[in-house]
């Protein structure tokens, strides 16, 4: 129960942060991180997949409503919510998901977490940018945008992991 309230707050906080601040950064004129998918990356792995789908859909839709981009964020966010558990499974070298409740740098190990989060971020961003361009007209411009934005989002995710997720609290889950 406690956990549900915690994640509900994280949901609202990330949506407001994304729509109010992060989507207006426009670093170097065009670069924005999409940190709100942090929620989907760190939800407990035991979350029923049907809830994951609905959470992903609701998250994307909330962002879309605030940014006036109907569907643009809903589609990639629902997609990564759907494939998240498989990606987590594949990213672990030893393939032991049982012992891990929450995917973090400390529970999964640095390289496994970076692989896991990286795959989700790159998939999300590339779907997002190619949907926005609506095809492959400016293929290389869009690709470059995807690469830079993914790197930005990933650095933020890792920064948050080291700053706000403590080893001790993880053991309590």
């Amino acid at each position: 129960m406690n956990n549900i309230i915690k994640y509900a707050f994280l949901f609202i906080f990330l949506v407001l942060l994304q729509a109010g601040v992060l989507s207006h950064l426009n670093l170097f004129g065009f670069l924005n991180p999409f940190l709100y998918i942090y929620l989907l990356i760190t939800l407990p792995l035991s979350t029923p997949r049907i809830y994951m789908l609905w959470i992903g859909f609701a998250l994307g839709l909330s962002i879309d409503m605030l940014l006036n981009t109907p569907g643009l964020h809903t589609i990639p966010t629902t997609f990564i919510a759907f494939i998240r558990n498989q990606v987590a499974q594949k990213s672990l070298v030893r393939g032991e998901l049982e012992g891990i409740k929450v995917p973090t740098v400390f529970t999964m190990g640095f390289s496994a977490f970076v692989t896991y989060a990286g795959i989700l971020v790159v998939l999300h961003h590339s779907i997002l940018f190619f949907l926005d361009a609506f095809g492959f007209h400016h293929f290389f411009a869009v690709l470059l945008n995807t690469v830079y934005s993914s790197m930005l989002t990933m650095s933020l995710i890792i920064l948050i992991q080291f700053l706000f997720v403590s080893r001790k609290r993880i053991e309590m889950y």
Binding site: L53, G56, D64, P70, G71, T74, I75, T78
Partner: peptide, 17 residues
């Protein structure tokens, strides 16, 4: 359900376009 939600997303996207 996944297909349904994605379909909804695409309907929103195309309507907007």
């Amino acid at each position: 359900l996944f297909l349904l939600l994605e379909l909804l997303g695409f309907i929103l996207l195309l309507n907007n376009r």
